[in-house]
Simulated scan of single mutants.
Amino acid sequence: MFADLYPFGQAEPLIGQILTRRSAVNRPDRGVVSCPQSIAELMWDNLPLQPQKGWQVLEPSAGHGILAAEGADRGCVMDCYEIDNHRAAEITRAGIARHVRAADFLTVSSEPVYDAVVMYPPYRRNLAVDHILHAHRFLRPGGVLAALVSLGIQNAEGERGRQVRDLMKRAGYQHVLDEADFENGYLLSPTGLRLRAQLLYLCADDVHE
């Protein structure tokens, strides 16, 4: 049951909590559902500029590194952040990334040096917004961010939601996934909830607000 979130026998603490409390505890929201290979390919294929050999690309919250592996196959130099130590180690062992750091991406200081960011952020609407806005600050002028997100991200509330909508109006476009792209056109959350999905592309100018 817990093999993806707690690999290599690390589920014992969680099982202990369940037995002690005699009830299930909330599963940590770490965005552990991997991006399907077909969608990874589509995300890269639809970039406004076709990636060039040697492009520097970031995959934050990388999970098992599906997007990074696709970028490496296209000649890009990949860097990854992944909150889970075991999954970060998997990416390192696969040899698909230049640097792999085990860290909460939202705590990492931004450096606008990347030609592109490719990402599958946590599915929760406001958390996805936080990840996208933070990741956008890692782009060099002229860079592009690509993200697999639910359609509901356009309805995110508060100032952060407004900022994402402003980016979408100013420098973005969308590709809504359907049956031809993705089984039933849905994105599955870690809890199995079906969400209508889209690929969101946001370009960077010379100003990072």
Rank of each mutant, 00 (worst) to 15 (best):
D4I: 13
Y6M: 01
Y6F: 15
Y6T: 06
Q10W: 04
Q10S: 14
A11Y: 04
E12W: 10
P13C: 08
I18G: 03
I18D: 01
R21K: 14
N26R: 15
N26W: 03
N26V: 05
R27M: 04
R27A: 00
P28L: 00
D29T: 12
G31S: 00
S34N: 09
S34I: 03
I39T: 13
I39Q: 02
E41M: 09
N46F: 04
L49E: 14
G54S: 11
V57L: 07
V57R: 14
L58E: 12
E59N: 14
A62E: 03
G63W: 06
H64K: 14
H64P: 01
I66D: 02
L67M: 12
E70M: 12
E70A: 14
G75R: 13
H86K: 13
E90C: 09
R93M: 05
R93Y: 08
A94P: 04
G95A: 09
G95M: 01
I96A: 04
I96R: 11
I96F: 02
R98C: 00
H99W: 05
V100K: 10
V100P: 10
R101Y: 00
A103K: 11
A103D: 12
V108Q: 15
P112G: 11
M119R: 01
Y123H: 14
Y123R: 08
N126T: 10
L127F: 06
A128E: 04
R137C: 08
R140M: 06
P141W: 05
L148M: 14
L148A: 05
V149M: 05
L151N: 15
G152I: 01
I153L: 06
Q154V: 07
A156D: 03
G158K: 09
R160G: 01
R160H: 14
R162F: 01
R162N: 13
V164I: 13
L167F: 11
L167M: 10
M168D: 00
A171Y: 09
Q174M: 06
V176P: 00
G185R: 09
G185M: 05
L187E: 09
S189C: 09
P190S: 07
T191V: 07
R196A: 08
A197F: 02
Q198D: 01
Y201A: 01
L202T: 08
D205T: 13
D205C: 03
